[in-house]
Amino acid sequence: MRFGDTIDVIDGKRVWFISDMHFGHRNIIQWCRPEFRNLKEMHQRIVSNWNFVVGRYDRVFCLGDFGDFRLFRKLKGKITLAKGNHDNKQWSKQYVLNYRGMKFLVLHDPDSMATNWFDGDWIIHGHTHINSPFIDIRRKRVNVSVEVINYTPITMEEIYHIIQESKNYRDNRPVR
């Protein structure tokens, strides 16, 4: 995908975002997921939450650090993958989405040089886990790392409404 290419989102209730599942990554539990006793428990929660909200024909943008690809077949939806720093596969690194008159850059690492060209409205990203807020009003960023979205994908429509509502506030939102 070239930088100027865009995807027009028609139904924001059927387009989802999630990042940093780290399936199969044992150390992630001790680093930032102490609520899980083991990988099996973590995998079950993420897959269950995902399949509870995502429909079979919905589109899911997974913004990097997917992990063990064997879990891919267990997940509902048409999954579009963006490459993260822990991914070995050669997926696209970023996407530009238009929704309700707004332009979103969708990628893994919001601090990468790949964002310098972007002149749109907001960046939807992962990579930062719990080290950045869910909504960063000043930087116009939405963090969809699993830890800040309760291990459950979030829709484009929900993100849009939260951004609109955030115009009334001066502070960031730490979690969804």
Score class of each variant (00 low, 15 high):
130 I>Q: 11
142 V>S: 00
64 G>P: 06
96 V>R: 14
172 N>G: 03
59 R>V: 14
121 D>H: 06
89 K>W: 12
131 N>E: 10
10 I>V: 15
128 T>W: 03
170 R>E: 08
114 A>D: 15
18 I>V: 11
9 V>H: 09
140 K>G: 04
134 F>N: 01
113 M>G: 12
135 I>K: 01
59 R>G: 01
37 R>F: 12
41 E>F: 08
93 K>E: 15
99 Y>V: 04
163 I>L: 09
160 Y>N: 08
93 K>A: 12
118 F>T: 00
12 G>V: 03
54 V>F: 02
135 I>L: 11
160 Y>V: 09
44 Q>W: 06
169 Y>W: 10
167 K>M: 13
49 N>R: 00
130 I>K: 15
89 K>H: 13
88 N>Y: 09
26 R>I: 13
61 F>I: 03
11 D>K: 06
50 W>Q: 03
1 M>S: 14
158 E>W: 05
114 A>W: 03
19 S>P: 03
18 I>C: 05
3 F>N: 14
3 F>M: 13
82 A>C: 15
33 R>F: 02
69 F>M: 14
5 D>V: 13
174 P>F: 09
90 Q>H: 13
12 G>R: 01
47 V>H: 05
98 N>G: 09
138 R>C: 12
172 N>L: 05
169 Y>K: 08
169 Y>G: 04
28 I>G: 00
112 S>R: 04
56 R>D: 10
150 N>C: 11
170 R>F: 08
27 N>C: 04
85 N>F: 06
92 S>P: 14
100 R>D: 05
80 T>E: 10
74 K>P: 02
136 D>A: 05
45 R>I: 11
103 K>C: 10
48 S>G: 07
172 N>R: 04
